[in-house]
Amino acid sequence: MAFKRSIFASASEDRLENLVLERLKPGADKEKIDARIWDLFGEVWCIMFTDLSGFSRGVEKFGIIHFLQTIHESERVLVPIIEDHDGILLKSEGDSFLVIFRNVGKGLQAAIRMQKELLEYNKDKIPEEKILLCVGLGYGKVLKIGDSDVFGSEVNTASKLGEDTAEAGEILITQTVFDNAQDTGLKFEPIKDVPAGTHGAYRVLY
């Protein structure tokens, strides 16, 4: 099964690369090629980026073994929650996850569950062993390349919110997530630091 997945991802990447190379040729009809790329790879997803607060400082202070322990524990606690909410973990790089969900509701539910699970996990932990999670969510049309990566404005904005803006325990969302979350019963409050790529950004109150 893993072998088949690698073939499919490679085929998608090859197709995209060929279209991009065609786009670079003199006189290329870029609008037509762009439409072909979106037809092939354009999908609507809820994008989640996670980051661990203070992680780099922890590595510097406590060393690489502490780094590996924290990564292992965060995956052990959080990946089952992602799977329970039908999320797809596309990437795990260092202390960050890139996850996609088919709809906003499941993305928000997963994020809240992750934060609440870590609140329980951290109760009996010494400060350096606590897992402090930051989450950013975006929603919209993206280019999904096999099961390896996604690209788009909402991807970039979710990354900015999760990795740069959010504090420990926060879930921050883009305007499009907010617009599509009005039937979830959740409450939100606007934040002042709105990154490029979205008209507004909000904190989830949970």
Rank of each mutant, 00 (worst) to 15 (best):
L68G: 05
Y139I: 06
D29W: 08
L143F: 11
H85T: 14
K61L: 13
A35T: 08
G162K: 04
D183F: 07
T198Y: 02
D84N: 14
S159E: 00
V194T: 15
E73G: 01
S159C: 10
A110P: 02
Y206P: 07
W45Q: 07
N103T: 14
G136M: 02
L90I: 04
I81F: 00
S53K: 03
A9P: 11
V204T: 08
G140E: 04
A201D: 04
E128H: 15
Q69R: 12
G162M: 07
F178C: 00
C134T: 00
S92K: 08
G94E: 09
T157L: 08
K91P: 05
I171F: 15
L133M: 05
P195A: 04
F8T: 13
A28Q: 12
G54K: 06
K32S: 12
R15A: 14
K192R: 03
K91Q: 15
G200M: 05
C46D: 00
D164T: 08
F97P: 14
A181C: 09
G185T: 09
G146R: 15
I131W: 06
D29Y: 04
V142H: 02
Q69T: 11
D34E: 15
E163M: 06
K30I: 09
E31N: 11
K160W: 10
Y202L: 04
K160V: 00
I88V: 14
G42H: 09
L161N: 01
D84A: 15
F55L: 05
I7C: 10
L172A: 12
A35C: 03
F49H: 05
K123D: 08
M48N: 01
G58L: 03
I112E: 02
Y206R: 13
K30H: 06
A2C: 11
L186T: 06
G169M: 01
R102P: 11
Y139D: 12
I81Y: 11
G197W: 08
L78Y: 03
A158V: 13
A9G: 07
C134D: 01
K30F: 02
G58S: 07
E129K: 12
I64Y: 14
D29H: 06
E167L: 08
P190M: 08
R23N: 15
I71W: 00
E93V: 11
L98T: 01
K32A: 13
G185Q: 01
P80T: 03
G138Y: 05
L119Y: 00
S153C: 09
I88G: 00
E75K: 14
I173V: 15
F101V: 02
D39T: 07
K187H: 11
T184E: 14
F151M: 14
Q109A: 15
E128T: 00
P190K: 05
G94S: 10
G58T: 09
I33H: 14
R203M: 05
E22I: 01
L205H: 06
E13S: 15
D147P: 01
Y202R: 08
G185E: 09
S148D: 10
E163Q: 07
A28K: 10
D29N: 15
I131M: 01
L186Y: 13
E128S: 05
P195Q: 00
E154R: 10
E120M: 08
G105Y: 07
A28T: 07
R36Q: 15
K160A: 13
G94R: 01
Q182E: 07
L68K: 07
K130L: 00
V44L: 12
E154D: 12
I145G: 10
Y202V: 01
D179L: 11
V135E: 00
F178S: 00
E13H: 13
T50S: 13
K192D: 03
